[in-house]
Amino acid sequence: MHMHKYEKIWLIFGGITLIVFLSVIGVSAFAMGHHPPSDMTTIDPEKVKETAPFDDPGLKKIGDNEYEAVMVAQAFMFGEPLEVPKGATVHFKVTSADVVHGFSIPGTNVNMMITPGHINTITHTFDEAGEFLIICNEYCGVGHQAMSGRIEVN
């Protein structure tokens, strides 16, 4: 089959670009551990308050400047404000006691859906001091616009 020289150029260019994009995503997923913020851990959404660790939500120190934040999202709150030192790595473990909520910290990569029946996890390192907002970005009911939480990094 005859093909124009330029046609070969842009087909090779497109092919290489695709390979590079997919390789970067593949390496970051399999070698660097980047993955979507939900796992296959499930929970009975009607028994959230009796099921560990959600029977005792809050911040727990699990290592050197490393914390686990166990949170229950429900209409229309995220729980008590959190306070962590600068540079802290926080593993958020969140579930919903009622409907689907959003869990987003503007200015960071933290952005996940909180689905009832699932335990959603995401990790973030707070390298800058300041006050961070947690907002619900999935419409969850009449009080949705007032649903927010706070993280104090100092």
């Binding site: 330029y6 842009w10 260019f13």
Partner: peptide, 14 residues
């Protein structure tokens, strides 16, 4: 056929 413009357009989009 002259494909200079096509090549340029494809490269710009790329």
């Amino acid at each position: 056929p002259k494909l200079n413009g096509t090549l340029l357009s494809v490269m710009l989009v790329g």
